[in-house]
Nucleic acid binder design. Structure first.
Lengths: 331, 331
DNA sequence: CACGCGTTTGCACCCGGTAGCAAACACTTT
DNA sequence: AAAGTGTTTGCTACCGGGTGCAAACGCGTG
């Protein structure tokens, strides 16, 4: 039976009241040096440290932030989670990682996070529809919510995203300058707002350059396998002369799968026969075999902004940040 | 100012005492159908759900499990985290993800987890030395700890690991059978018990087959980049006739980097000129370009066992589980 | 109608802190 | 010595639940 020492225990040991003990642990509280020393000594002997649970109950602040994640297939989540947890911890906060899946949907996750009194909820790249918030099981007073790395279509729920319009503009400008004129776009999840936006801007900017036709290849999901399969299907069913000369993939995982297939199975040269560009700047894409051109989301800045909103140093308003085009040799 | 309804509020609305409200939410408590119905109705109207914080304080059970992670560079962490969070959630538990790094060391993380009264701590693949537990800042009564996917050298801290001896035996048997006789081993972190164990067994099993010499290539860390660089250095400084005929890499990330370099930069054929085998069965390794042979850790079973220990259905003892050799065409 | 028994309900007290007030104390000032 | 001022300390009340006991209730029986 493990039992932690309480303020009362320390108080008895130090010969003071429990409130004096608490003051010794409250920065800036009114207490004499002498009492503080005695309390701290007794506390050290008993290995006392305040029970954060009890404190949370009294202060109505848990210093816990729920982080919803629903797509563990994207390796890009990992560096984001690393930065996010690191920055949260620097603020004295801790991340409650919640896996949204078939067994545990958004409503259940929200309910759970609310019951656990988290200070905030970060929807990290999860597909979240506004209907969810109308679920009658949900109370009217949820903890503050923030959407990270995906658009928020919900009023009052701010999002922190990479500027998709700017990103696609830079990409299309670059591709146009390189001389490509027959663009293709490989889409992942069919009904994701972020995905739709990327596709939309891509097609749009090409139109602005006088290129009206953009082929769309649908991979349905995000994995190297899916990227390979969908490009395989495309290449097999399209005459060489009709093929796109550059393929933009919705993320690097799709691009890597596509790249493998284009070169390995079809023996085409990249970028000469078909160029490929991805999105996210996933580490492996930078490996020499791939040399994948891509676009990097401003991860650190995005996390920083969410943290600032959570801590209240920034107003909770949607923020769009510019990313960075990474040109390697695949396009 | 968000305010959740309390049991007292519901009690007033339903015309009963708060204890009756609590009983309505306690499975198996003594309460009439009629009262329960009325309470539940009032609760629904007020959107009441019990405050888990207060409950935790009273019951001394938080249903929170701290998960320590210190290496976010390994993409293998992600599928593990997915399974882990999913299984924890199925048990009504939630994962507190704690990032162990230069700013936040093990002692601080332990202190924090303890203060937050977590029910258990899972050290997920973190390098953890027994000295840490002797830190005088730490109390004698920490929450139960478990090491996942790495050896535990600490008494009383059980580990759940993939059977390294069996794994390396299967790998070496396979390679021997394929006719390889000049093995090499690419190591990542130099001072990791798990790493050392893999290397040790690899060298050992070759010796048992009469092959006394195993080349060791040190990559120092785990990344495709590091794998590529270290194999580059090796190939550049080793005559073709002296080179290993098969290279075992400590994990798939290293192997992928090495594979790229061996083929792309040195124009060697894999597996004819040099075979490569990895460890972990990372998704991308299975892509057609790589066709990386590897060894898969029994992720689901490992997570399952940890969960069973946490919930007390299994005694807290180190468990070693067999993995599976995945033969593709790189070796 | 009183009695006995099992069920339901209310209550005092507890979990380990925090907030804010008032008493106690120390130290000047007049 | 009394009054005035500022600091330190202790106390009551509270955060929102849970526990175990005792009172109240319902109901069949003698």
């Amino acid at each position: 039976m493990r039992r932690r020492a309480t303020a009362k225990n320390v108080a008895d040991a130090a010969g003071v009241s429990k409130w004096t003990v608490i003051r010794a642990f409250t920065p800036g509280a009114s207490i004499t040096e002498e009492s503080k020393r005695r309390v701290l000594q007794a506390a050290a002997a008993l290995n006392y440290s305040p029970n954060l649970l009890a404190r949370s109950l009294a202060t109505n602040l848990t210093h816990q932030v729920a982080v919803f994640v629903d797509d563990f297939a994207n390796p890009q989540k990992l560096p984001f989670l690393e930065t996010l947890t690191d920055r949260l911890q620097a603020e004295g906060l801790v991340a409650m990682l919640i896996n949204i899946n078939n067994h545990f949907d958004h409503v259940r996750a929200l309910l759970n996070a609310d019951q656990r009194q988290v200070d905030a909820i970060i929807m990290f790249g999860t597909a979240f529809r506004s209907e969810t918030l109308n679920d009658r099981r949900l109370g009217r007073s949820m903890p503050p919510m923030f959407v990270l790395a995906r658009d928020s279509q919900i009023d009052g729920v701010p999002a922190v995203v990479c500027d998709a319009e700017l990103a696609l503009k830079e990409i299309v400008d670059h591709l146009y300058e390189k001389g490509y004129r027959r663009p293709g776009f490989m889409a992942g999840a069919p009904a994701l707002s972020t995905a739709l936006r990327r596709r939309h801007h891509f097609i749009d900017f090409w139109k602005q350059k006088g290129v009206d036709e953009t082929a769309v290849i649908s991979a349905e999901r995000y994995s190297a396998q899916a990227g390979a399969e969908s490009v395989h299907h495309y290449l097999q069913n399209t005459d060489a002369k009709d093929r796109v000369d550059v393929l933009m993939c919705e993320n690097d995982i799709l691009a890597i799968g596509a790249l493998d297939e284009i070169r390995g199975q079809f023996g085409l040269r990249v970028p000469q026969d078909m160029a490929v560009i991805g999105f996210d700047n996933y580490e492996l894409g930078g490996a020499s075999v791939y040399g994948l051109s891509t676009y990097e989301q401003p991860k650190d800045e995005m996390v920083e902004v969410v943290i600032e909103m959570i801590t209240g140093r920034l107003p909770p308003e949607t923020v769009t940040l510019p990313g960075k085009l990474i040109v390697r040799n695949s396009a």
